[in-house]
Design a protein around this nucleic acid. Sequence first.
DNA 1: ATGTTGTTCAACCAAGCGGTTGACAATCGG
DNA 2: CCGATTGTCAACCGCTTGGTTGAACAACAT
Lengths: 110, 110
Amino acid sequence: MVENRLDVTFRALADPTRRGMLANLALGDKSVGELGEPFRMTFAGASKHVKVLETAGLVERRKAGRKQICTLRPEPLREAEDWLRQWEKFWSVHLDGLQALVDAERDEHE
Amino acid sequence: MVENRLDVTFRALADPTRRGMLANLALGDKSVGELGEPFRMTFAGASKHVKVLETAGLVERRKAGRKQICTLRPEPLREAEDWLRQWEKFWSVHLDGLQALVDAERDEHE
DNA sequence: ATGTTGTTCAACCAAGCGGTTGACAATCGG
DNA sequence: CCGATTGTCAACCGCTTGGTTGAACAACAT
């Protein structure tokens, strides 16, 4: 499989635990333990989630004594948002109730 | 599990086949067969992907003769983008190289 | 009536995921 | 030194995923 960047980013974001961890990281760097603590879950479980975020390029780790300090790396979020913005014109048209306009445009192409 | 809206949306987007189908739908309504055709894959396989998109609220189907015509429903994409935009200030700060500013702000809270 | 097209459904398979436990290692505080 | 903290890794479990095949069915074509 191709496994491109958007795949792993969206996959990482498709879990509420991981989105919660990211939100937590937005408030400042955290250790793996601190990231897992809000979600009743073992250390190993939290560690796995952090690894998913790390391989998605969303967090970076550095050792500090016996702790592993995680930092938010938001670049992949930006790429994901860039991709989503492609559809901006679509939903704005829909929400403005201008479906008929889209239909007309499509009919021209058929 | 909670299975909220963002979960299913991001998971639906985490597959290049489904993103391709969406891109195709952006050009106009398509039948299930037309959506699957670009990806060497059986009918049943394409049908499953379409179902994932449908349960994510990203496509709507209507019967037209023996075909199933799919329409893009972009609202969930908008919600996903809204969620991603929360981090806009983070990556702009990072890209501007103003990490020190973030650190300073965090230090005030500690 | 027969066949072809478009599609779903059920069953299956291999791989992956979210989570646990248990063993291990490194680091810090007495 | 000892013991508690903070992790990692490997193995396992049950469930989901992406994909297939084969059967079925409805709708059109002949």
